[in-house]
Design a protein around this nucleic acid. Structure first.
Lengths: 219, 219
DNA sequence: GTCTATACGATGATAGAC
DNA sequence: GTCTATCATCGTATAGAC
């Protein structure tokens, strides 16, 4: 059960490093965190990190991948599942909220992945390929649901790319908004009460925004 | 007309520095940009920046202030203007889109101001006070419009803080989404065509999300 | 107001002992 | 796998000439 898959001695350090790096990168960004910062919080020497990851960028890339996979695993099945488009969208948004709420770093890292691509010079982009692909697939799955909803007449006739962007912004920003968000809410963002309300509110918001209200009955 | 207000010799450098710093900070973040980077692009020596700004943080704070003032000047009058809540909200969203579209850095910097507050240690927060106050005032004005809309029955009964967060995310993220956004759109984000469509689409989206559709006539 | 020179700590990364 | 050096580089910031 606890058998390490490979011949390395302490494969647990990798995950501990990834956990710490995820938290720090999420709040301070790639440039804002040093390898020493991470090592210090893990309880290792700085050099030890380089034994597990070939460099800072590779560590960052793996952190992003892990986060995006975590989201994709839960949200994509819902987007691609059964039911009509509005149902699938509602469920997917709820699951995305759950995922973003369970780990406070996720939304920030996702935001960075969406917004901070050109931070890295051309030469290094290849290392982030997997993360970028994960983003593209998630976004694509969302657009597909929206397209189906429009085609079946369940949704208003919206611009698909714009609606995709709007939905993402509406859901994700809140969970990344930190202190400003708490000031707006007047309570912690990640309290179970606030999360439950948030889930209901965004889902309703987006549902109302898209679902055709003056819909004529018939096919 | 071109009289410098003070006794300094070349007050134009300040603005040139602020322009360059705004562009660089927006794309790379505070930690991602060095004073040398900025100086190089301005065409000055690194040390000259310290003659205009007491340090990196002060420069960053002034950049943020300028951007937030730029937004506030156009959007707040609309939020606090005349007309009923849905009208004012529509107009304000349109103006926010215009402002974010006119200068491609604005949205990113606004996002950072919303999301990256705790990046700075307690000791340095005071320098960002003005920027934080500007954010709070803008957000407050938005919430006030939403509150009025709900009270008059024009809007659905939504959670005000959640709706505020949702609206901001829906509008702002798009203009900050850079390469990923362009991949979604299939065209440049800031082309006049894309901006015009975007403006229409978000305004409609939010309008539909909030305005009561099964509204009963009467007071 | 801008420059050159410089101080000096922190950074990413490597080499090699244990 | 982890550590202790160590390196070259780059970071912010200052001092002082022009």
């Amino acid at each position: 059960m606890a058998t390490p898959p490979e011949n390395s001695a302490n494969p647990n350090s990798r995950e501990k490093i990834l956990d710490v790096a995820e938290a720090l990168f999420a709040r301070q960004g790639f440039a804002g965190i040093s390898m020493s910062d991470i090592a210090l919080r893990v309880g290792l020497g700085k050099s030890s990190l380089f034994h597990h990851f070939s460099g800072k960028l590779e560590l960052y890339a793996e952190v992003c991948e892990r986060v995006l996979d975590r989201i994709g695993e839960r949200v994509r099945p819902a987007l691609e599942g059964s039911g009509d488009a509005p149902e699938r969208l509602d469920v997917a948004i709820g699951l995305l909220c759950d995922t973003l709420a369970e780990h406070p770093n996720t939304a920030r890292l996702l935001l960075r992945a969406l917004v901070e691509n050109e931070l890295f010079p051309e030469a290094d982009r290849e290392q982030l390929e997997a993360a970028n692909r994960a983003v593209a697939e998630l976004v694509g799955a969302l657009t597909t649901v929206l397209r189906e909803g429009v085609q079946t007449g369940a949704f208003r006739e919206v611009s698909l790319p714009d609606a995709t962007q709007t939905v993402i912004g509406a859901v994700v920003l809140h969970f990344a908004s930190g202190e400003v968000g708490e000031a707006i809410l007047g309570e912690p963002i990640f309290s179970t009460k606030a999360v439950a309300r948030r889930k209901r509110e965004v889902t309703d918001f987006i549902h109302c925004a898209l679902v055709q209200h003056s819909k004529l009955e018939g096919s």
